[in-house]
Nucleic acid binder design. Sequence first.
DNA 1: CCACAGTAAATCGTTCGCGATATAATCGCA
DNA 2: TGCGATTATATCGCGAACGATTTACTGTGG
Lengths: 153, 153
Amino acid sequence: MKAMAKAEIPSPEELMKIDNFLCFAIYSANHAFTRVYKPLLDDLDLTYPQYLVMVVLWEKDDQTVGSLGDKLFLESSTLTPMLKRLEAMGYISRVRDRADERQVRVRLTETGRALKEKAGTVPCGIIEATGMEPAQIGRLKEEIAALRASLLR
Amino acid sequence: MKAMAKAEIPSPEELMKIDNFLCFAIYSANHAFTRVYKPLLDDLDLTYPQYLVMVVLWEKDDQTVGSLGDKLFLESSTLTPMLKRLEAMGYISRVRDRADERQVRVRLTETGRALKEKAGTVPCGIIEATGMEPAQIGRLKEEIAALRASLLR
DNA sequence: CCACAGTAAATCGTTCGCGATATAATCGCA
DNA sequence: TGCGATTATATCGCGAACGATTTACTGTGG
């Protein structure tokens, strides 16, 4: 056996190996998720980031761009073009708020709302691909969310 | 208290909430890492993905595009433009292999090699930003690497 | 009432990331 | 030998993602 799993301080050499990078594990796992999602989302004509936007809207309809950005940790410079594509596909509408014309209200269309049913099987497919138990998934998710909070602090 | 943390099967409703998505935790943590890296890498004139390429080369110089892609889980369509930028910056050279002209050998320049010293403090800055202990980081990294393996299976 | 600070989206330019495809070199085998 | 299959990289088009900036609206103090 090669590592005694003592609480040793990692040497600078070890610190510089890509396979010891937590960030790289996350970076590459993120790409892996994207690839797993691809075939599942092709049916819905959604990309993975677009799907995340739809999930947020299915959870709560009629949100501003800013509110979506807060939940997804994305900037308006990312969201605006994405939302325009979703609008062009007929899944959402984008309308200036009458009361505050600075804001744009993003709403599901009937088609967009209906898509939720069709997407119902997607999470199962993903869970299966992880090869993990729901409880384990939940635990890992919490740890990573906590990490994210630290990083954004 | 709202959740008894029993090993219940999550309801379809719960499954469709973005904050319960493991993939979203990873997606957003990845963006968070990118933002933390930005100021640390600005000194080196590297983007975060470029930095990862350099790390792999510092670990082992003189690799083919394919070998880099295997280690970073990236396609040539992603790497080729990135490597051209690193070459234009003077950090690497790209030369066709004499023995097998299909391959391109990527090598560090003197400048590129020297950059490793300057980058020495980066991992510490990142570890600090995670707010985690090295052992904890290692454990989490392993879990996510295992997840990645499952997803790519 | 109005200049001005603040806020919300949109726009622009750059870099990543991929799939599909193209190009070019090598390999296998008849 | 030579030709079809395979392999390695490059190219292209598209969709994220961001920082910096712009545009347009709101809200406030004088």
